[in-house]
Amino acid sequence: MTDTNTAQPIVLGDVEILRIVEWQAPFAPARDLVPGVGPEVWESNREWLAPDHWEPDTDRVVAALQTWVIRSAGRTVLVDTGVGNGRERPGNPLFHQRQGDFPGRLAQAGVRPQDVDLVVNTHIHADHVGWNTHAVEGDEAWQPTFPNARYLLPAADDTHFGPAGGYGGGVRPDDRLTYEDSVAPVHRAGQAVLWDGEYRIDDHLTLEAAPGHTPGSAVLRLSSRGERAVFVGDLLHSPVQVLHPDCSSCFCLDPRQAATSRRRVLERAADEGELVIPAHFGGSGVVRPRRQGGGFGLEPWAVS
């Protein structure tokens, strides 16, 4: 597994964006991750998919586990918080008892835990909420990693994955573990903010519901002095889904609804010139879609 950390800033208007990478490596077989996309699609797009997004020799999708740091209106905002250290995730060997230096990588980017004002969890999956909390030596309870932050959690996900929803209905045992070690402690500390529909953070940042991947999946829109971006979480796991937006990942709880949300977000991005910033893309981590026939294409520089 390759560890990389790309902290080259992106500046859009008055907003600065930094990328903190926990790891980037081949993750899952392509047809397992996005079942609706056939081998001919991957092969015909080999020139730009490899090596940042697809490993042809093993037919595995290359994915990154990363957090986006946004500096906006005098505040520091984190978008998703990765897997975390020392987690019991028996259903996923990649995440189980992982040990990494995410806090050190934040520090290298000039971000101390006490400096973080807001944490945005685009949805409640294990690889998006893990560093919400951390273990404190001598204390068996998990504690919020960012002591001064409000944690913005989609209300629909909090219900679905929390005790009220039977921890995701018990479909994946790891969901209970994830909620109990990465979400419940934030509630107990009084730092959780549940939202639904739309939530305006400041003049530049707005959260919007984009359900399907999970009931509460969200996107974060950025607009500053005519420049735009949208952080889409797991609406996209691979750039091939820009070319084939009706194809959802194997992790989407409602694939049809996820496809509807994906197409809506891509249509607006293409029409308004938004950068699209998914949670797990390798390479630059950013794409710029454009209208192409009845679907979408990609600007070449955005996937390099």
Rank of each mutant, 00 (worst) to 15 (best):
E22T: 11
H244A: 12
A63Q: 15
G84V: 02
C252A: 15
Q24N: 11
Y199A: 04
V116Q: 09
G190C: 03
A141Q: 11
R172E: 14
H280I: 09
P245V: 06
G212V: 10
E40W: 10
E198S: 14
F102T: 09
E180R: 13
G273F: 02
G36E: 13
W48Q: 11
Q66V: 01
T67K: 11
G104C: 03
G84S: 01
R172Y: 12
L65N: 14
N92K: 15
G74H: 10
V120P: 00
H280M: 08
A270V: 02
V276A: 04
A107L: 14
L94T: 13
N85T: 06
I10S: 08
G38K: 15
S72F: 06
A30H: 08
P239M: 09
D175V: 14
E274D: 11
V120G: 00
L194F: 07
V186E: 08
V119G: 01
G197L: 03
T81N: 09
D115W: 00
V265D: 00
H187T: 05
V242E: 11
D246W: 01
V119M: 01
A279L: 09
P154G: 10
Y199P: 02
W48V: 13
E47W: 12
E137T: 12
E137M: 04
D234K: 07
F102Y: 07
R225W: 04
V286E: 02
D254M: 08
S223V: 12
A269G: 05
P289A: 14
L275K: 05
V186S: 03
G38T: 14
V276C: 06
P173Q: 15
R228Q: 12
G169Q: 14
P93V: 13
G294L: 08
A135M: 03
N121F: 05
A156R: 15
V276H: 02
D117T: 05
P35F: 05
G38I: 08
T122L: 14
A218R: 02
H213C: 05
H160S: 11
D32T: 14
F296R: 11
H244M: 09
V242I: 15
P185G: 02
L235C: 05
E227V: 03
W68Q: 06
E140Q: 05
G233F: 00
W142H: 06
E208H: 14
G197W: 05
G13N: 08
V119F: 02
W142T: 01
P29T: 06
V265T: 15
T159C: 13
R89W: 00
V69Q: 04
L78F: 00
L106A: 03
A302R: 08
E272V: 02
T81A: 06
